[in-house]
Simulated scan of single mutants.
Amino acid sequence: MTDLATPNTTGDTWVRYRDDLERPRPDEEEIIDRIIAVLRRNNERAYRTYKRGVRDAHAKSHGILRGELIVPAGLPKELAQGLFATPGSYPVVARLSSTSGAIRSDQLRGVRGLGIKVLGARGPRALPGDDATTQDFIMVTHREFLFADAHAYLTQGMPTAWALARLSDPVLRVGSNALAALDERVLRRIGRPLPPTLGVFVRPNTHILGDTFYSSAPLRWGDHVAKLLYTPSSPEVVALRDRPMDAVGINALQDLVVDFFATHSAEYELRVQLCTDPRVMPIEDATVPWPESVSPHRTVATIRFDRQDPYTPERRAFGDDVLSFNSWRGLAAHRPMGSINRLKKRVYEASSNFRHDVNNAARFEPTDISQLPQ
């Protein structure tokens, strides 16, 4: 470990970022080509259904939020990296979503997504030719990714993605309820829940503003490597953790978000879990939990949202049809890492290109928060 890690004052070690921490399969690009081809057919099918292009994941939004990311003074050196190297504040646009590539009822169980776009992120970029001044972080409500790498996603995830794009809401509701009942029986009998690939379909429907979101896969953290966590911190949203979703209707989550921000502000913490040993906390296998006992998540910023209307027609159109989120759009200091992130780089770009082309919508990356409609 001595060639990979830097000791800190407590005797722990933080893995130093190096290009050769990543080890792609020789056939990874061909695997990603095959995934993109299947997802393109899903995109085309969705376009025929909705008469407009939608994302092949995170298709349905529940709120487009205007906020502020605040980096405090006094962060330890290993945390004060990249965008977070100096104290300050940055405007933020955040998009809450469900991760399905179809527009479905919010009464269905499933994974939620969060796209965070930080404005004013200046410095060397993760991708050549990117002249934006934004930093995107994309997060979901499952801590580990469901598939280890691009190959596992192709062989295990793509059949599910193909089916989910075609099944109706009533069929999915019946299947989800059956899995939930099975999960309870399995838990009682053997003391363990269903595998994560099935468990996401029995996740309780809770208030989305009380959810915790995760990067699921690692990214560069300046001199080091990390995963991210975003969690409620102000009392009003802490109180919503694990609260059952009591709203009804197909757009229940949108209604909850709009109603909350009509009368409340909210604060969340962005936390970092640094990698201490790539053998215990692997870069390429996104299904392996990084143990908190070895390296706990530590706060690097607060994200604040004031009272607002987060889903005006203009906001919805801007967030769904104009904006794109891609974690590779950002600083070199926060370059995504591992097979799942390399997959997302190409998949997200292909989906965004298709969506903007069929909608005849110009690609646009904001430079000022005033560009977000009221």
Rank of each mutant, 00 (worst) to 15 (best):
R112L: 15
L114I: 08
A126T: 10
G53T: 04
D106S: 13
R66C: 06
L79P: 02
T99Q: 12
G67V: 04
R55K: 12
A80E: 13
V93R: 00
E78Y: 15
S61I: 11
V118G: 00
R66G: 01
V71T: 06
T134P: 03
G67L: 05
A85V: 03
E78A: 14
I70D: 04
L96M: 14
S105Y: 08
L69M: 11
P124N: 07
I64M: 10
F84S: 01
V54C: 08
A121I: 10
L119W: 04
P91I: 04
E68P: 04
S98C: 11
D130C: 10
I116A: 03
Y90I: 02
G53A: 09
A85C: 08
G129I: 07
R125S: 10
G67P: 02
R95C: 06
R112N: 15
K60H: 07
G129C: 11
E78T: 10
E78G: 07
I116T: 02
A80K: 12
R125H: 10
V71M: 02
K51T: 11
L127H: 04
L108F: 05
F137T: 01
P76A: 15
S97I: 05
G115A: 15
R95H: 14
L108K: 03
G113S: 11
T134V: 15
G123L: 09
I116S: 01
P124H: 07
A85P: 05
V93N: 00
G110E: 09
A132C: 06
P76N: 14
V118H: 01
Q81V: 03
L75G: 08
